[in-house]
């Protein structure tokens, strides 16, 4: 299956395992214009992202609307798979959700020392329960 690697603003890591796992896949980043404008994202953040992207070999950077642009790129590259990273960001998650209608989505999870599903509402409770795991290499 031909794949595209699609980076999001919470995962700008040139050393990420997905880059090694898909060495020949085109690497894509999209500055989502509606998001930047709606949330009035500052120039410093955009510059930081840009500088981070330039460390990713052969990165292709676009600006526009994420989902339609990725659909075009899928077609252009005859790709059927999108490889990306998980994030709790609900805006990025919504794009990922929409893209599943057009491609097989492979999202690498973020690594945490513990996976807690108990919804602790206070940090003190969370830490009390998990400090050992966090403090063990």
């Amino acid at each position: 299956m031909t794949a595209l690697i699609w980076f999001n603003e919470d995962g700008l890591n040139p050393a990420h395992p997905m880059v090694q796992d898909y060495p020949t896949a085109p690497r894509i980043y999209i500055f989502d214009r509606p998001y930047l404008q709606q949330w009035q994202i500052s120039k410093h953040r955009i510059q930081f992202i840009y500088e981070s992207l330039l460390e990713i070999a052969d990165i292709q950077i676009y600006q526009g609307n994420t989902v339609p642009l990725l659909r075009q790129l899928l077609e252009q590259h005859q790709a059927t798979e999108i490889v990306t990273t998980e994030t709790p960001n609900h805006i990025i998650k919504a794009w990922q959700h929409d893209l599943q209608s057009y491609a097989n989505l492979v999202a690498y999870p973020e690594v945490y020392p513990v996976n807690d599903h108990s919804s602790p509402r206070r940090f003190s409770r969370y830490w009390h329960q998990h400090d050992r795991a966090w403090l063990t290499p």
Partner: peptide, 29 residues
Amino acid sequence: RNAIADYIQTEFPFLENTGCLSPHVGGRK
């Protein structure tokens, strides 16, 4: 970094120009 800043300003003209570079340089390195 200055070239990036200028280019960003032309590509994203709606951004408020900060007029200075942040001391935080992007990238893993």
